[in-house]
Design a protein around this nucleic acid. Structure first.
Length: 355
DNA sequence: TAAATTTGACCAGT
DNA sequence: ACTGGTCAAATTTA
């Protein structure tokens, strides 16, 4: 199992384990002191978080092709605090005029950034979507010097409504056209990010969250994945697939009919963990001039798989590929905590903890 | 009709 | 001057 782990990953796990052990020691000491239930709960929250982190890492496994391009947890340039609130760069961002907006956009270069290489199925010709569970809106496309394929730029759909400034870039690899390099920048501070962070690796909480969710944001997962609408969409897509190949398009939010509002990977992770499968697809707008944007609804990295090739052939018919879990924020946390972040009242089990 | 995408223009960094 | 990243009006889609 460990053979495929990078040094950074091993190191991270080691640190997490150490932190957990230290916290346990602290808990022991605290328990000997009088009272202080709040401390106890705090420590428990810390432990719980460590355990979740380890679980996430184990689930992502060594075959995840995620690469940390600019892993900056804790660095000055990393603006995301552990409680998930937007950093000073982003918080309260109100774009009063275009100049301010552009200044902010440049500052975003200092945000944590990481790249995933998503391999898609080359057998079907229908290279399908890349869906990482978040809902993205394309805001630009550029031809990149020396690159065969253009780069597409996406921002979180909820930028305006929830002040979420996560963005991603998608570029098809020149070397291996079946590989899409997806660079994420910033973290999701929107509800979908919180939702995914809290639940995607905590199946026991999923049911509860489903009852809490906004019906407009998250439809019942089963309905999304296997409901009538899904089947209809699959049929539509299959009809389009014959004319759909690289160089054609899908949308980055193309999976939303099945996952709606980008919560697919929640279910997918859960299903994958259980050894079941999901189908993913795109709903391309498909003007010819568009370029394909990979959107793997499937994140099959659980158990060490990553690309669609590892799926059951029956699942191949549309496509799927995966990305790392929850937009890979787990490798980008701002550790260690500082004194402010460890607030006795901080809800470690709350939605914001992972972001 | 609202939301999403396209695409030319603008801007900052190099 | 060139390039990458973003904006925003126009267009398309659902």
């Amino acid at each position: 199992m460990e053979s495929g782990w990078s040094w950074d990953q091993k190191s991270l796990i080691g640190e997490l384990i150490q932190g957990m052990e230290l916290t346990k020691q602290l808990r022991t000491e605290l328990s000997s002191a009088s009272g202080e239930e709040s401390r106890g709960s705090l420590v428990q929250g810390i432990l719980s978080s460590y355990e979740k982190a380890l679980l996430i890492l184990k689930w992502n496994g060594p075959t995840n092709q995620l690469q940390m391009v600019e892993a900056t947890p804790g660095l000055p340039g990393s603006p995301i605090s552990v409680n998930g609130s937007p950093s000073s760069d982003d918080s309260g961002r109100v774009l009063k005029d275009p100049q301010d907006s552009r200044k902010e956009s440049k500052k975003r270069k200092t945000q944590p950034r990481w790249t995933e290489q998503v391999k898609v199925n080359s057998e079907t010709g229908f290279e399908g979507p890349h869906e990482d569970g978040y809902s993205w809106r394309k805001y630009g496309q550029k031809d990149i010097l020396g690159a065969t394929y253009p780069r597409s730029y996406y921002r979180c759909t909820f930028r305006n409504t929830q002040n979420c400034w996560a963005v991603k870039q998608v570029q098809r690899s020149d070397e291996d056209p079946s590989v899409f390099e997806i660079t994420y920048r910033g973290k999701h501070t929107c509800s979908q990010g919180n939702y995914l962070a809290q639940t995607c690796h905590s199946p026991d909480k999923q049911e509860q969250k489903e009852t809490d969710r906004d019906p407009h944001e998250l439809q019942p997962l089963q309905e999304n994945l296997f409901g009538n609408q899904t089947i209809q969409n699959i049929e539509k897509l299959e009809n389009k697939a014959s004319t759909f190949c690289f160089g054609s398009s899908s949308t980055s939010v193309g999976c939303k009919d099945i996952v709606n509002a980008g919560f697919s990977n929640l279910a997918i992770d859960t299903h994958s963990a259980l050894g079941s499968f999901t189908r993913s697809f795109t709903s391309p707008t498909s003007p010819d001039k568009n370029y394909f944007t990979p959107s793997p609804c499937q994140r099959s990295n659980v158990g060490g798989t990553h690309s669609v090739q590892n799926l059951d052939p029956d699942v191949h018919e549309i496509f799927s590929a995966n990305t790392s879990a929850t937009n890979s924020p787990i490798l980008d946390w701002d550790f260690p905590f500082d004194s402010e972040q460890i607030n006795p009242n901080f809800p470690f089990n709350s939605q914001g903890f992972f972001y």
